[in-house]
Nucleic acid binder design. Structure first.
Lengths: 200, 200
DNA sequence: CCTCCTATATATAAGAT
DNA sequence: TATCTTATATATAGGAG
């Protein structure tokens, strides 16, 4: 698009590369914005320069919404939903670990803006792992036995989660959202849900 | 860039919007790929169509690498560093855990189980940032105008979430649970919760 | 939803400031 | 490095299949 055609391969000249980066980065972000506005869609774009600088664009109102759509996407994947159970297996455990790391330290001191950046990046990263996972899931076949084992473990995990939820008002909603994306059609959940809905 | 100039605002005609989405989406992804190749940088791009489909591009060699750059970025932020350090440390810890769990493998080679562990941890970290964010929001002094704006946006988001959920029986109860646990300080939610709890 | 077509609108490579 | 200029390369709107 310039005076001459450029091959799409790494630009070796450092100077030219930097100029191209600057121009194309802003062009890319502009395009992303246009697409999100014109077509009313959510877009998250993150660019890391080779020197570690971060550039980003997000159409995002709230990440909750984006993630909601995201899980919606996978929830509708029939193949994958069968196996999502697995993810719940260690959720409570891991959540506990991560929270104990983050809670105490300085996540508390981050600004809203910083938190949002963090969210965007986590979401982008997450989407990468999930995409890869669904690909794997399509290729994977689990035996019935394995499934049963997982279900059992999952129920144990859920009990812990619920216990935790009841301890911490602030996290309930987040937990539920997180759970939502991992518990789709799990029949063994219904009973527990019913208990929640119809407390004594 | 076509037969006529197009204003950058939501395309109301559904058909034209869909066509523009398809064309521009592929154009955007192409541009992202070109930028990452030409300038040798990491890029993550995620696009959610309004109907929940997911499109993405990632230059990502490995997530680990991207995460590494992420922490590098924040470690090098001079002004914010005193606040970021701790958080970055925590994040780095998480990263370390992930890495030690996965040992020598790259993300491309991870097992389903490992990917899910990674996903879980990311999701958990995200939930931590979101929880912290909503706390911050609550603590922040907002003008009445700002509050109204937020509530309106939130309700709109909720309406969409609910619309999506109503397509799927299995999620109703989970959402009800999630909403239930936030009844306390969100008056604007109550009405909707009732609807959720007592479906037609 | 694609692909192909064509006329135009945009993006951008070089160069200059 | 940021901006402006200009020639050219690309992207894409509208239409047809």
């Amino acid at each position: 698009m310039g005076r001459r055609k450029v091959e799409i391969k790494r630009i070796e000249d450092k100077n030219r590369r930097q100029i191209a980066f600057s121009k194309r980065r802003s062009g890319l972000i502009k395009k992303a914005r246009e697409l999100s506005v014109l077509c009313d869609v959510e877009i998250a774009l993150v660019v890391f320069s080779s020197r570690g600088r971060l550039y980003e664009f997000s159409s995002g109102d709230s990440l909750v919404k984006i993630l909601g759509r995201y899980s919606g996407h996978y929830e509708q994947e029939p193949e994958a939903s069968k196996y999502h159970n697995k993810a719940v297996l260690s959720f409570a455990e891991v959540l506990h670990i991560v929270q104990s790391q983050l809670e105490e330290s300085t996540i508390e001191q981050l600004s809203l803006r910083d938190l949002e950046k963090l969210e965007i990046q986590l979401a982008a990263t997450l989407s990468g792992t999930r995409a890869r996972k669904s690909q794997l899931v399509r290729e994977t076949i689990l035996t019935r036995q394995e499934k049963e084992k997982l279900l059992k473990a999952e129920n144990e995990g859920l009990e812990r989660e619920i216990a935790e939820m009841e301890k911490n008002e602030d996290y309930r909603r987040e937990m539920a959202i997180a759970l939502m994306s991992n518990t789709e059609n799990s029949g063994h959940l219904r009973q527990r849900q019913t208990l929640m809905l119809l407390p004594p």
